[in-house]
Design a protein around this nucleic acid. Structure first.
Length: 492
RNA sequence: GCCGCCUUAGCUCAGUUGGUUAGAGCGCCGGUUUGUGGAACCGGAGGUCCUUGGUUCGAGACCAAGAGGCGGUACCA
C-alpha cells in the first residue's frame, strides 16, 4: 500500500437544465401552483394526475428506426422492448387518458393537472429540461365559448400570480387565418405543403426576436445568422412573403379594429372566414366579460410552436423587461399558452373530439420573477427553541408544541453545537425569535424570548462590543406559563 | 448540432513583457465574549490556477486538443 491512497469520490453535480430550487424560488413555485390550481378549481375543473412515463407512441411520436424515438424527449426501452418516454407536456397524456376512458367520463370533461414535464433541449434562461406546468383543459366542447373561457382563465391566472394590469398581455390568433393566407398564395395541401407550412410557422414565431427583415428571409430562400449558420427558408416567393408579413402585422390596438384590418386580407377563403368568425365570437365574449381592458389583444403574429393546434391559439406574455446579472435584457419566452387541438384525441379514436386548453409555465414564470427581483426574501424562518441542556429535550418539544398549537411556526434546535452556534443558526434561518431556556430560566420557572429582528436593528447603533454583549438587547424574560403570549407579542 | 466568448479560493475577481513562496474583497471557521446571532478588532482554514499534451532552463500566463460554463443560432412534436 502506498502512503496516500486516493479515495475515489463521485463529484456532486447536477445535469444541465435540471434545476434545484430552494428557499424563495421553491416557495414561489409552490405559491404559483396553489394560485393557479385555485383559479382552475374555482372554475369547476377537477384535478387529474397521470404518470411521468408514457408509451412513446401515445405521446404522439412515431417509433424510430434506430435508437431513439426523438431528440426532443427522454426515452428508453422497457423490458419488453417497448419505447417509453417522459411526458413533454400535460396535453398529450390528457389525450391518452380521455381516449382510454372515454365512455364513462362526463363530456365536456374539465380537468386540471400539475407536474413536471421533461424536454431534451438546450437549456437557457427560463428554459429547463425539467419544468413544472399547470394546465386546464376542456374536452368535448366545440364552441368558441370554450376558447374564450380558456383565455379568460389565462388572464385570471396571471392576476392570481400577482401581476398587475399592464404587466402581461394575452395575445390571441387563429391558425385558420394563416391557413387561409397560405392557401391564397398557393401553398399546396400536400406533404410538401405541410413542411412549408411548418417552416412558415417557425419563421413567424421568430418575429419578435429577429424582426421582419430576418423573418422575410426565412420565409423566402433562407437566412444566414450572425454566427454564420444557415437556416433553410420556407421558399415563398416575394408576393407570398409580403402577404404573410402583412398578415402578421395586421394587429391594431383593440379587438374590433384588428378584426376589421384582418377581414380584407382573408379574401374569399372559406377557412379564413371561419377563423375570423371564431375570433369575432371570442372577442365578443371577452368584451362582454370585461377582459378587453388591455389584458387581451388579437395579434396575428402569434402562432405557437406546437403543431397540434387547429384553431384559436393564444399566448400569455410578460410585458416587463428582465435583465440578467450583467444588465443585458433576457428573453424568457411566453409564460403560458394554449389553444384548440381538435385532432389530438381523434388520433386514438378515429372520431373527432374537440378540445381546448391553457398551460401555465410555472418554472419559467418563477424564474422570470426571480430575474425581476420580485421574489423578495426567503420565507421567514421558524421560531427556534435553543437546546441548551441535553436532558431537557422533552421540555423543549413541549414548548414547540405549545407554539404550534397557537399557530406559530416553531422548531427545537437539532444540532449538536453550543449556544453561540445555535444563535448563528437561528440568524441564518431568518428566525424572528429564539426561545432561551437554560439552567437559570429552568430553575426559576421562566423563559427568555429574544427578538432577533429587533436585536439586529439595535446592533446598528451599539458601538461597544461589551455594551451589546452584556446589555442582552431585545429580549424579555417571564414566567414559563406565559411562553406563547410572550412569543406572540414578540412577533407583532 | 453550428458559431463566438469565457474557465485562478465557497462567491466576485486581480495577477506586470513567461521568472522561483499565486493575491484581494466578500463569505466561512476561531478568538476578544467557556449563556447570546447581527457591528468592530485580531487570527485561521481553504487552490490539481478546468484537463491532457506541447513549446521553454522555467508556464497561472504561450500553442493544440478535450471538458465545462455563458451567449447567439438551430431544433422545440
Amino acid at each position: 500500500m502506498s502512503k496516500k491512497t486516493k479515495t475515489l469520490r463521485p463529484k456532486a453535480r447536477r445535469p444541465k437544465g435540471f434545476e434545484d430550487r430552494f428557499g424563495a424560488l421553491a416557495s414561489a413555485e409552490n405559491a404559483l401552483i396553489a394560485a393557479a390550481a385555485g383559479v382552475y378549481h374555482s372554475h369547476g375543473f377537477d384535478p387529474l394526475s397521470t404518470s411521468a412515463l408514457e408509451y412513446a407512441d401515445c405521446l404522439g411520436k412515431f417509433l424510430p428506426d434506430d435508437d431513439r424515438p426523438n431528440e426532443g424527449v427522454f426515452a428508453f426501452t422497457d423490458d419488453d422492448d417497448q419505447w417509453m418516454a417522459l411526458r413533454y407536456d400535460l396535453t398529450a397524456p390528457l389525450a391518452r387518458f380521455v381516449a382510454e376512458n372515454f365512455d364513462p367520463l362526463p363530456k365536456p370533461l374539465r380537468r386540471f393537472a400539475v407536474g413536471p414535464v421533461w424536454r431534451n433541449e438546450k437549456p437557457g434562461p427560463g428554459r429547463f429540461r425539467e419544468f413544472i406546468q399547470i394546465d386546464a383543459d376542456t374536452v368535448g366542447a366545440p364552441g368558441a365559448a370554450a376558447d374564450a373561457e380558456m383565455i379568460m382563465l389565462a388572464a385570471d391566472v396571471m392576476d392570481a400570480a400577482g401581476l398587475a394590469r399592464g404587466e402581461y398581455v394575452i395575445r390571441i390568433n387563429n391558425r385558420k387565418l394563416l391557413d387561409a393566407i397560405l392557401g391564397g398564395i398557393g401553398v399546396p395541401q400536400t406533404n410538401e405543403g405541410a413542411i412549408q407550412r411548418m417552416r412558415v410557422l417557425r419563421a413567424i414565431d421568430k418575429l419578435d426576436r429577429l424582426g421582419p427583415e430576418a423573418v422575410a428571409r426565412l420565409l423566402g430562400e433562407g437566412r444566414k445568422d450572425d454566427s454564420g449558420d444557415y437556416t433553410k427558408g420556407a421558399g415563398l416567393d416575394a408576393k407570398g412573403i409580403e402577404a404573410v408579413l402583412a398578415f402578421t402585422q395586421a394587429g391594431a390596438g383593440d379587438l374590433n379594429g384588428t378584426l376589421r384590418t384582418l377581414e380584407p386580407l382573408m379574401g374569399r377563403s372559406e377557412i379564413g372566414a371561419q377563423g375570423l368568425g371564431e375570433l369575432r365570437a371570442i372577442a365578443d365574449l371577452l368584451q362582454a366579460a370585461g377582459y378587453e381592458d388591455g389584458r387581451t389583444v388579437i395579434d396575428p403574429s402569434i402562432v405557437r410552436g406546437l403543431g397540434y393546434y387547429t384553431g384559436p391559439v393564444f399566448e400569455a406574455d410578460l410585458r416587463l423587461e428582465t435583465l440578467n446579472e450583467k444588465g443585458e435584457p433576457v428573453r424568457f419566452g411566453s409564460a403560458g399558452g394554449g389553444g384548440r387541438y381538435d385532432d389530438l384525441i381523434a388520433r386514438f379514436r378515429g372520431q373527432p373530439v374537440p378540445a381546448t386548453g391553457f398551460s401555465f409555465g410555472v418554472s419559467r414564470f418563477a424564474a422570470a420573477l426571480h430575474a425581476l427581483g420580485r421574489l423578495g426574501n426567503a420565507e421567514r424562518g421558524p421560531v427556534v427553541i435553543l437546546a441548551l441542556e441535553g436532558d431537557q429535550m422533552a421540555q423543549y418539544f413541549a414548548m414547540a408544541t405549545e407554539l404550534r398549537n397557537a399557530g406559530i411556526r416553531a422548531e427545537v434546535y437539532m444540532g449538536g453545537s453550543g449556544m453561540k452556534a445555535q444563535m448563528k443558526y437561528a440568524d441564518k434561518r431568518g428566525a424572528p425569535a429564539v426561545v432561551i431556556v437554560g439552567e437559570d430560566e429552568r430553575t426559576q420557572g421562566q423563559v427568555t424570548v429574544k427578538n432577533l429582528i429587533l436585536g439586529q436593528q439595535m446592533s446598528g447603533q451599539i458601538k461597544d462590543n461589551k455594551e451589546w454583549r452584556e446589555g442582552r438587547p431585545a429580549q424579555v424574560t417571564g414566567a414559563r406559563s406565559t411562553l406563547t403570549a410572550m412569543v406572540a407579542d414578540t412577533l407583532n
